[in-house]
Design a binder for these strands. Structure first.
Length: 155
DNA sequence: GCCAACGTTGGC
DNA sequence: GCCAACGTTGGC
């Protein structure tokens, strides 16, 4: 099977790459967008590699690498009224929301900022650079994935 | 804090 | 099923 590549956004004030390094493995709960749900449920596979991206950060950018270690399973937070991720319409019988587990792989030697990603011609077409792209989980070409890691090793 | 982009909701 | 209102994302 072909290895596959992703980018996942997280706000560092909520959950940062440092948090992931500390935890080792974490469940990626709280996705409440159907496009993203479908990608996670139908496309994400164990062993897939993930760029971890800090959004709403100064500056925003890619900070690390993770790996999918558990494929989609029900996001029980959707059923918990006390959870920030409570989804009023979800029931135990009909809970549309899923999460995956990801494991820490590496922190990049340095943050590769959104500005740098935009400026890199080899990253043209990367989804995160698309205007108005709001997918918090998105597929990444293998070439783009490698190019981001290469950028991190430079400068 | 602003606001553009865009997904979701709900009245009709 | 249309579409205006509303909510969220996320860069700036």
């Amino acid at each position: 099977m072909t290895p596959r590549f992703w980018l996942m956004k997280t706000e560092p004030t909520t959950y940062s790459i440092e948090d992931l390094q500390r935890d080792g493995v974490t469940s990626w709960e709280g996705v409440r967008n159907y496009q993203v749900r479908n990608l996670m449920r139908d496309e994400m596979r164990r062993g897939d590699k993930v760029l971890i991206y800090h959004s709403n950060a100064k500056p925003p950018g890619v900070v690390g690498v993770a790996e999918v270690v558990r494929e989609a399973y029900p996001d029980h937070h959707a059923l918990d009224p006390s959870s920030h991720y409570y989804a009023q319409k979800a029931t135990a019988d009909k809970n549309p929301w899923v999460m995956v587990d990801v494991a820490f792989v590496a922190q990049l030697p340095r943050l590769v900022s959104l500005d740098e990603l935009k400026a890199a011609p080899q990253l043209e077409g990367m989804w995160v650079l698309r205007r108005g792209s709001r997918l918090s989980v998105q597929p990444v070409d293998e070439a783009h994935f490698s190019a981001v890691l290469a950028l991190a090793d430079q400068g």
